[in-house]
Design a binder for these strands. Structure first.
Length: 207
DNA sequence: TGCCAGGCCCTCTTTAGGGCCTT
């Protein structure tokens, strides 16, 4: 199964830390239901400050593109509606979670669901991967690339495909019929050496 | 003035250091 919906999201930002004044400049997200993308959300946002040349080069998003973009609060209110009360997923979720929580706080909203981290889970499901950057995992799993890396919607879509791929591989490898969200959350915290035992035990209890 | 992210996770560890990930 794994039929519960999740929203997979990705932010492009002015830097690494909302605590140091960094803001979001683009959000991309996909809704996944029944292992397929059924809805999408994407918007650039004007952060009210200039972005540096590293960010322009890294993302391909320029100051010129942000000049006429809607302000961050306006987009974040819309995005909060898109999120609803769905479970959330991101690649290196602690990063996106910090920015999401900070920007929602500014518009007096709050996150209501847990975040699962596709990077932490991929380290456990695909320990053989050369590394666990999104770009490398997309190559490793032969996931079709849906646009330029480091743009929010393309990264969210590819992370979404990675999420579906990990659920499928868990089912096949461990003969788990149903991979609920809470299993993915728990898996992301299991010591790596203990992963096979953890999953075999789950499969037994399920059966 | 000078500082400058944070959390996971391995190891030559736990009285710590440094690579990996995200922009």
């Amino acid at each position: 199964m794994g039929n519960y919906p999740v929203v997979v999201l990705d932010f492009e930002t002015t830097g690494l830390s909302p605590d140091q004044g960094d803001r979001v400049i683009e959000v991309g997200a996909v809704l996944i239901e029944n292992n397929r993308i059924t809805d999408r959300f994407q918007s650039l946002m004007n952060p009210g400050m200039r972005i540096n040349s590293f960010i322009e080069n890294y993302t391909g998003i320029t100051n010129d593109m942000l000049k006429d973009a809607p302000p961050v609060p306006e987009v974040m209110k819309e995005f909060a509606s898109f999120l609803g009360d769905h479970h959330l997923v991101a690649h290196n979720a602690s990063f996106d979670q910090r920015f999401l929580d900070a920007e929602l706080r500014r518009v007096r909203r709050r996150r209501v669901r847990d975040f699962a981290c596709s990077m932490l889970i991929s380290r456990r499901v695909y320990p053989e991967a050369p590394n666990h950057r999104l770009e490398s995992l997309v190559l490793h799993k032969k996931i079709k690339s849906t646009g330029a890396f480091h743009r929010a919607l393309a990264d969210a879509e590819m992370t979404g495909h990675l999420w579906v791929s990990m659920i499928r591989d868990l089912k096949e490898t461990y003969r788990i019929r149903n991979v609920p969200f809470h299993l993915m959350l728990r898996l992301s915290k299991v010591a790596r050496k203990g992963v096979p035992n953890f999953l075999e035990k789950f499969a037994l209890e399920e059966g």
